[in-house]
Amino acid sequence: MNGWTAVLAASAVCFAVKLLGYVAPPRWLERPRVARVSALVTVALLAALVAVQTAAADRAVVVDARVPALAVAVLALLLRAPFVVVVVLAAVVAGLLRALGLAG
């Protein structure tokens, strides 16, 4: 894919969504159902990204070094670690397991 086309198109779409709140008649967006759908779509998308980023390789579901790394991330989040610590810990776990030849 052309990286720049995607970068610019996605940025334009995100800006248009932001502008919508300034130009749309409020009653369009003020329905509780619309706000609820928006909140839960974000949850669904992020959860799907977690799943795919953890266990998908091309067109297959696989278990590799990313799964234990994510388990460590869950533990760090339960212990209220800051964002950057969670991310770095996951990278270190996956990197170490691969360096030691313990996981793919």
């Binding site: 909140a39 839960l40 974000t42 949850v43 992020l46 959860a47 990204l49 977690v50 980023q53 953890t54 070094a65 990313r66 790394a69 994510l70 991330a73 869950v74 989040l77 964002f83 969670v86 991310v87 770095v88 810990l89 996951a90 990278a91 270190v92 776990v93 996956a94 990197g95 170490l96 691969r98 360096a99």
Partner: peptide
């Protein structure tokens, strides 16, 4: 990949999701 950046991306999404999981529905 050898630096575990793919796992870091998964953890980043999880950390973004985490504060939104405060009730049964989400």
């Amino acid at each position: 990949r050898s630096l575990g950046m793919d796992a870091a991306a998964a953890a980043a999404f999880l950390a973004l999701l985490w504060p939104r999981l405060r009730s049964a529905t989400p």
